[in-house]
Amino acid sequence: MSWHSIRIVKGSGGYGGPLTITPTEQKHKFIYVTGGERPSIVDKIERLTGMKAVDGFKTAIPDEETALAIIDCGGTLRCGIYPKKGILTVNVLPTGKSGPLQQFIHPEIYVSAVGDKQITLTDETAAEPIAEEVTAEKPKYETGKSITTQTQHKSIIAKIGVGAGKVVATFNQAAKDSVQTVINTIIPFMAFVALLIGIIQGSGIGNIFAKLMSPLAGNVIGLCVIGFVCSLPFLSPLLGPGAVIGQVVGTLIGVEIGKGNIPPQYALPALFAINTQNGCDFIPVGLGLEEADAKTVEVGVPSVLYSRFINGVPRVIVAWLASFGLYAK
């Protein structure tokens, strides 16, 4: 069996790359974890390289045998998980550095907005990632640490100083991480949702939508219908990615609550109704994080989809019962 190298560049609006993928004796499989259908690039890569494609929703392959991961992530989790594991990642969507794991997304390991046209055969072979061996030469003082953290016998004052320094540094690092999270994930979504609200309220769409949404979201039967539809096992993986649909529908219901078209106590069952598909797109990746066997993934995907379907409507009803007395005047 002969394998060929391919080169993948970013598509329009994409990020990262170009990546060169060279199948080897050990790495000659690649995984695709996309909600729903198989993207056409999977076929193309299979044809060009001679590698075997594996559907991540059906089965799993060990990380060290994975040459490539193909995903369709809008910027929440998946786009960072494979780069974090050190697996070359191809995103079908034009997602850049984003999500909670964005620090692992680099142009050397990740490329996005990839279609058929971005994939070409190449003669070059990918350089094997050489593990950087740090030679163990130990100078008297490490340059990375201050002298106070290195001296063997600490005086009490030094101990207090070091302790306080550690507390401050931990807080400071936490603050840096938090600001990054806010800038990279919360504020972009807020801008998108705020624009959506502007369009809904400023144009006439809001009134049409209110007529459509109020009877659905303003009573328990309608909410059960929403929850039922979202939990249908063939639909739920498609509604999941990035929780975008749930977040948009939630915002639309929120706008109607704010306008007084839907009573506020329905907020509680609505929270459950819009999210019965919770995590259905993420099952193989989540089970991967749990270090589950391939067999467990095969069983786990349909199992969780079924249990979401069984639970979906009861969750809405229980939430509705629990909403009695909420915001009662």
Binding site: G242, A243, G246, T251, G254, A270
Partner: peptide, 10 residues
């Protein structure tokens, strides 16, 4: 925080 608007939207 990445999926805050499921909660925050409502």
């Amino acid at each position: 925080p990445g999926e805050l608007f499921i909660w925050m939207g409502i």
